[in-house]
Deep mutational scan, measured.
Amino acid sequence: ITFYEDRAFQGRSYETTTDCPNLQPYFSRCNSIRVESGCWMLYERPNYQGQQYLLRRGEYPDYQQWMGLSDSIRSC
Results as ranks from 00 to 15, higher is better:
Y4H: 02
S32Q: 00
D71S: 08
E59K: 11
P61L: 07
R45W: 09
W66P: 11
S37V: 14
G50R: 02
Y48Q: 02
T17N: 03
R29M: 14
R57T: 15
Y26G: 13
R7T: 03
G50V: 01
Q51A: 10
M41D: 05
C76A: 13
P25N: 13
R34Q: 09
S72I: 11
Y63F: 12
T17D: 05
F27S: 06
R7V: 13
S70Y: 13
R12Y: 10
P61G: 09
N22L: 13
C39P: 14
L69M: 04
E36N: 11
S32Y: 02
T17A: 10
L54Y: 02
E44M: 15
S28G: 13
M67E: 05
R34I: 03
P21F: 04
E36A: 13
Q49G: 08
R57S: 09
G38P: 06
P25G: 12
S75L: 13
N31L: 03
L54S: 11
Y53W: 14
F3P: 00
D71A: 11
N47S: 05
D6S: 07
Q65I: 05
T18R: 04
T16G: 06
G58P: 01
V35I: 00
D19L: 13
P25L: 12
E36R: 07
I33Q: 01
Y63C: 08
L23E: 02
S13A: 08
Q52G: 07
P25E: 14
E59C: 15
P61I: 05
Q49C: 15
Y48I: 01
N47G: 14
S13T: 08
Q49M: 05
R7Q: 11
D19F: 08
S72E: 06
W66N: 14
C20P: 01
Q52M: 06
S72G: 12
N22Y: 14
E44R: 11
L42A: 06
C39E: 08
R57V: 12
Y26W: 06
R29Q: 05
N47T: 06
Q64W: 10
F3T: 01
N47P: 00
D6N: 09
L42W: 00
N22M: 05
S70F: 08
D71F: 05
R57E: 14
L55Y: 09
M41W: 13
R74T: 15
E36G: 09
F27M: 14
G38Q: 01
G58F: 02
G68H: 13
Q65M: 12
E15I: 14
N47L: 10
R45Q: 05
E59W: 03
W40D: 01
Q10R: 07
R74W: 15
Q51L: 12
L55W: 01
L54W: 07
T17W: 06
F27I: 05
I73P: 14
G50H: 01
C39N: 05
T2A: 03
P25I: 04
P25V: 13
L23C: 15
D19Q: 09
Y14K: 04
Q64I: 09
R34V: 09
M41H: 04
D62E: 07
P21C: 05
Y4I: 02
C39M: 09
L69Q: 14
P21H: 04
G38C: 11
G58D: 15
L54C: 14
S70H: 04
E44S: 07
G68K: 12
G11Y: 02
C30Q: 01
Y14L: 06
Q52T: 06
W40C: 12
V35L: 09
C30L: 03
R12N: 08
F3L: 09
Q65F: 03
E59D: 12
Q10P: 00
C39G: 14
C76D: 01
T18D: 15
I73H: 01
T17G: 11
I73D: 00
Y26N: 13
N31A: 02
Y63A: 06
C20W: 06
A8Y: 06
A8D: 03
I33V: 06
S28A: 09
M67R: 11
N31R: 10
L42R: 00
E44V: 05
Y14I: 11
F3G: 00
I73F: 07
Q52A: 10
T18Y: 10
P21N: 15
E5R: 12
T17R: 13
C20D: 15
F9R: 01
I1M: 03
Y60L: 03
E44C: 14
Q65K: 04
G50P: 01
S72D: 03
V35F: 01
C76P: 00
S72N: 12
Y53Q: 06
R34C: 06
N22D: 11
T18E: 10
N47Y: 11
V35E: 00
I73W: 15
Q51W: 05
W66S: 15
P61E: 06
Q52F: 14
R57F: 13
T2L: 04
T17P: 10
Q10E: 09
D6W: 03
L23W: 01
S37T: 12
S32W: 00
L55D: 01
R7A: 09
Q10N: 06
C20Q: 09
R45E: 07
F9V: 01
D19R: 09
S72V: 10
C30A: 14
R56K: 10
Y26R: 09
F27V: 07
P61Y: 10
Q64E: 12
L55P: 00
Y4F: 15
N22A: 09
G50I: 01
R7P: 15
C39F: 09
Q10W: 04
M41I: 03
P21S: 04
D19K: 03
Q51I: 14
S32I: 01
T17Q: 13
P61F: 09
R56P: 05
R34M: 04
Y63H: 03
S37G: 08
L69W: 14
R45M: 11
Q49W: 03
P25D: 15
E59Q: 11
S75H: 00
S75M: 01
S28Q: 08
G68L: 09
W40T: 02
D19E: 07
Q52N: 08
G11R: 04
D6I: 03
G58A: 03
E36M: 12
R45V: 04
E15Y: 08
F27A: 15
P61D: 09
Q64A: 07
